[in-house]
Design a protein around this nucleic acid. Structure first.
Length: 350
DNA sequence: TATCCGTGGCC
DNA sequence: TGGCCAAGGAT
């Protein structure tokens, strides 16, 4: 038991990945503490998202809003625009709710314990454990996809996920460090991300190879077992991309709940087997030959694109005009950017 | 417990 | 090329 913990900590001392928000083990031993705001921001961004994708967004957010108080006082639309492209947009809405709760209910200081952190919006079991361990060195046990994979292999446990989560948590608890909880949490996750990878794991250089039952049994490539996923259906919709005579673009802020909630986008029909729903303005729409194809978590989308020029006095049924000089396609979610790229070929000339 | 919720890289 | 996968949370 204990030797696994120390083996991982020793490995982490020399193999920790550099991340802008991370306090490296040598700095931590010298007494440097992480900024809880930076750690919280990183952990929310890292939910189901790779480190490579998060780096630029974390930099942008800390540049725009250096403290949790700055973020709490930001405009909702500005935060959603800054998050555009990172996905899972409920995270951005909860990020704002959380920042405002920290300012209003915790005097602008993040609470330190798992029990207090998990009460905040957008912070679940994993993130509460990660923040309390990494930012405050509380002896919390993190259980993310990396740790699940490491434990499944370490104990050669073929119980399928997600039912196996409580079992893997029991394994993970055995090895949690009480001396260096933050470094240990990051060590297990770094191991899973760089050595005990889903495909082609580097067992030959693994610091806990000798203790690994899966490696001994040769089953590491099959683990962790997962319950099969449902196939993705294909849905179709129509995006309406219109410009007013003065060049302004017709856009619509989507409702907070549901897909792409709270994000700016083109007015569309509903997305079903066949598109149904009205256009945002009664006019002569032109259907383009090219479609925007996009795959979400649980369905494929074929988005047809229709364009139109509207008169200067047009009053649309839905959405609002954004002047050409204020329009920024990077504030749109990816599927809307794809539709824009297709439509812009014919609409770019005012 | 199951479903919903993005995106980009990888093989 | 299409499915898999990534430091999950809310409902």
């Amino acid at each position: 038991m204990r030797d696994i913990t120390n083996a991982l900590l020793d490995w982490y001392d020399t193999h920790a990945r550099e991340m802008p928000w991370r306090v490296m083990p040598a700095e931590r031993k010298a007494g440097k503490r992480p900024d809880p705001y930076a750690i919280w921001l990183s952990e929310v961004m890292l939910q189901q998202t790779t480190v490579a994708a998060v780096r630029a967004y974390h930099q942008k957010f800390t540049d725009l809003w250096p403290t949790v108080a700055d973020l709490a006082s930001a405009m909702d639309a500005d935060v959603m625009a800054a998050w555009a492209g990172l996905g899972y947009y409920a995270r951005a809405r909860n990020l704002l709710k959380c920042a405002r709760a920290v300012v209003q209910d915790h005097a602008g200081t993040f609470p330190q314990t798992y029990d207090a952190l998990i009460e905040l919006p957008g912070i679940g079991p994993y993130t509460a454990a990660a923040i309390s361990a990494i930012a405050f060195d509380e002896p919390s046990t993190v259980l993310d996809g990396n740790v699940e994979r490491v434990m499944a292999r370490l104990y050669d446990d073929h119980t399928p996920l997600p039912a196996a989560k409580p079992v893997f948590m029991k394994y993970a608890l055995r090895h949690t460090s009480s001396d260096r909880p933050g470094d240990y949490a990051q060590a297990v996750m770094d191991l899973g991300a760089t050595v005990c990878t889903p495909k082609n794991p580097s067992c030959d250089i693994c610091p806990i190879r000798k203790q690994c039952d899966g490696q001994a049994a040769g089953t590491q490539l099959e683990l962790p077992k997962k319950t099969p996923k449902k196939p993705k259906p294909t849905r179709t919709g129509i995006a309406y991309i219109a410009r007013r005579a003065d060049g302004a673009w017709l856009l619509e802020t989507r409702p907070d709940k549901g897909l792409l909630g709270g994000m700016l986008g083109w007015p569309t029909t509903e997305w079903n087997e066949d598109p149904n729903g009205a256009s945002p303005h009664s006019t002569d729409w032109t259907e383009l030959n090219e479609h925007a194809r996009h795959t979400f978590t649980h369905f494929h989308l074929i988005l047809r694109v229709q364009t139109a020029w509207l008169p200067a006095d047009a009053v649309p049924d839905r959405g609002h005009f954004i002047p050409a000089e204020e329009f920024d396609a990077s504030a749109l979610p990816t599927v809307m950017q794809k539709a824009y790229t297709i439509a812009n070929a014919t609409l770019r000339h005012v």
